[in-house]
């Protein structure tokens, strides 16, 4: 098992920030420091923030920057060990019993040994992240942990403290080199402190104008400078409105891409009205903004001089 190489970690915070920038991810200083320390101290990085601020993107960019595989576990209510860690392939096991039987080769003791081998094991993300025998340790992304049940958090806590998994039929599997762990949460509920205490915490907010403009130009390079500037300014204005769900960065990017497809070079009220559904996902929000409000917001957005700071939603 000597095949696992330790990851080549960035030398400094600045280097990490540049590596992320090369992956088209615009990381602010606080995030870079947290990520750098998480790598250095070998602790999970816990990212919290509203939906659509780019938490999952951090993990993707980090994996690419480190040049390692990303293993993603998407959490949902009812997620259990069978879907997070491992499961036996029952249909194949049953079939195997029949085959042994047909060959008159069945022997109770031997059958148990033969049936519970790695061949019949379905490996789920957590197991795959630990059992690496060659190459580099992967980056394990545990996405939207707030969707999973509290019971699962308890299990995860245990896993993250010693990076080993016990399968009764097979024995204990321990990671040679622990994976880099990134956990995200939309804060639909408070994740238990015991888990967060093991991690480095980073709150990711909606980006300010300059950062969001950089993100837009990095991710949708086809957009003209004028369009990118106007789109960013409009979304920034939109976030100051009192809405059920503010537009996230992913919505900004989708919207920009859509406008580029429509060959729009600048924003006008009619275009914004038509495409508002890409930015806002609640019918009430769309109704509240469409028409007059869009004109006001657009007016304010177009008035923004390049480089003037403006308050974003707190």
């Amino acid at each position: 098992m000597a095949g696992v190489r330790a990851l080549a970690l960035p030398e400094s915070i600045d280097e990490l920030q540049q590596q992320l920038a090369r992956q088209h991810y615009v990381a602010d200083r606080a995030l870079s420091v947290s990520a750098y320390l998480a790598l250095k101290l070998k602790r999970p990085l816990f990212l919290e923030g509203e939906a659509g601020v780019g938490k999952t993107e951090v993990a993707k960019a980090l994996a690419a920057a480190l040049g390692t595989e990303l293993i993603r576990l998407q959490c949902y209510e009812g997620l259990d060990i069978n879907h997070a860690v491992y499961e036996w392939n029952y249909p194949r096991q049953l079939l195997e019993i029949r085959l042994l039987e047909a060959a008159h080769a069945i022997d109770r003791q031997a059958a148990a040994r033969q049936l519970f081998t790695e061949e019949f094991l379905i490996k789920r993300p957590l197991l795959r992240a630990l059992e690496r025998t060659g190459g580099q340790p992967p980056l394990l992304l545990i996405d939207e942990i707030d969707r999973a049940d509290e019971e699962f958090e308890g299990y995860l806590l245990e896993l993250l403290s010693d990076f080993q998994i016990t399968i009764p039929e097979l024995g204990t599997i321990k990671a040679v080199e622990p994976p880099v762990v990134v956990i995200t949460s939309n804060r639909t509920r408070e994740v238990h402190d015991a888990l967060k205490r093991r991690c480095l915490y980073c709150w990711i907010d909606y980006p300010d104008f300059d950062k969001e403009y950089q993100i837009v130009t990095a991710k949708v390079p086809q957009a003209s400078e004028q369009l990118a500037r106007q789109v960013t300014a409009f979304v920034q204005e939109l976030r100051t409105e009192d809405l059920y769900k503010a537009a996230g960065v992913s919505e900004t990017l989708d919207w920009t891409a859509a406008l580029v497809t429509m060959n729009a070079d600048a924003l006008d009220p009619a275009t914004v009205d038509e495409t508002l559904g890409i930015l806002l996902k609640h019918q009430e929000d769309i109704q509240a903004v469409r028409g007059e409000r869009v004109q006001t917001l657009l007016g304010r957005a177009l008035m923004r001089q390049p480089g003037t700071p403006r308050e974003t939603r707190p």
Binding site: L37, D193, L200
Partner: peptide, 23 residues
């Protein structure tokens, strides 16, 4: 030790990541 205490901004970010567990 690993990031140094040269930059107040970085020290703040580091301590924030370590000491804060909730929004």
């Amino acid at each position: 030790e690993s990031i140094g205490v040269g930059s107040r901004r970085d020290v703040r970010a580091a301590l924030r990541a370590l000491f804060v567990h909730r929004y």
